[in-house]
Simulated assay, not measured.
Amino acid sequence: MALEAICGMNRMPFMRRFDDLQSEWQQERLREATSNFENPYALMAPPFERPAENLPKILSHCGIRMDFDHGTTTLGFKYRGGVILCADSRATSGQYIGSQTMKKIVELNDYMLGTLAGGAADCVYWDRVLAKECRLHQLRYRKRMTVDTAARIICNISTEYKGMGLVMGMMLAGFDDEGPKLIYVDSEGMRSHGQVFSVGSGSPYALGVLDTGYRHDLSDQEAYDLARRAIYHATSKDAYSGGIVRLYHINSTGWRNICNTDCSELHDSYCGTGHLDKKKDHKDSPDKDLPCSSGWTKRKLTEDNVQTKLETV
């Protein structure tokens, strides 16, 4: 064997052992599977189309159940003070809560943020790629990447991997030379500019609150309260949303994290004892109407009192 090694005969194909060939094949497969370490845009395609739809059908023959259910609540809106982004922090795997501290608002650069909704792995991976592209763009051209350029990059990625199981719906918000921007991009290749967006399983509940209280001339404190209230009501109605409510504000000076509040604290603020104390105060002072009251109850009581007096007479 030593003479074969010296002469190089052990490297000839017909002299190689099966174990060596097997290990080389495994290393080659591993190199192909991890090609995104060198090129982040080179991912291995799944063995069939639309894995979220077809994989459960294949596994049903084996008696294995795999749920692709996922949920979240993220929202964003533009107003006169800039852009507000707010999101919960619950990550679910089917009917199980995987994490209560998931960070669903990602800092791409000092003036741009992105939100996560859909598959956590897909959103986190491509947000990291986008953050790297933002940094490279700033180093190459000596200026920040615009929100439209970042949205176009994600839109091109979504179009390239369309039908391959990519599940992603994100908002990109920032402040550039054209002012505040809010763009929605999803895994179907859709790219849409707008004033108000909400993404996730709890978005119908959040949009109900936003449609009621949103105005473009909101003050900063009113905008903060509206965003927190919308996410809170979504977490109270949607089982897939919850945890910590993270609030970010973007303006001409960049983004800043306003607060990270637990849903239980928001429940105490909006539906706790403070609300009941206000009701008691209103009872003590009958001249003041309760919030959201139409006045019908007061008129009805007055009519009943008149009717009682007439019957007494």
Rank of each mutant, 00 (worst) to 15 (best):
K57S: 07
D277F: 12
V129H: 03
L226F: 02
C259M: 03
R229E: 06
H70M: 07
I58K: 14
C292V: 11
L310V: 12
G174L: 01
G76H: 05
D122M: 09
H233F: 11
S219E: 06
E133V: 12
S89I: 04
L30K: 09
V185M: 09
D281P: 00
D281V: 10
R229P: 02
S35W: 05
L3C: 10
P47T: 14
T115C: 01
T302V: 13
Y214V: 06
D176V: 05
C263K: 03
Y232I: 04
H193D: 11
I64C: 10
A150T: 03
N156K: 12
H70C: 07
E222G: 04
Q221E: 14
R31M: 09
G208K: 01
G163W: 03
T74R: 04
K283G: 05
Q221A: 12
I97T: 15
K237W: 08
T101E: 15
L85S: 08
N251T: 02
Y96Q: 14
E160M: 06
E28M: 14
S285P: 02
M171P: 09
Q307I: 13
Y232S: 03
M44S: 07
E303F: 12
D268A: 02
R191H: 08
R140H: 05
Y79T: 00
S294M: 06
E188R: 12
S35Y: 04
L218R: 08
E311W: 09
I105K: 14
L55E: 08
F48I: 01
T253H: 13
L85G: 05
R142C: 07
V147S: 07
T92L: 07
P47G: 13
G202Y: 03
M171A: 02
C134S: 06
V83W: 03
A117W: 06
H275V: 11
G82E: 01
K278E: 05
E311P: 04
G243L: 01
G114V: 06
I183G: 07
D127G: 07
T115K: 04
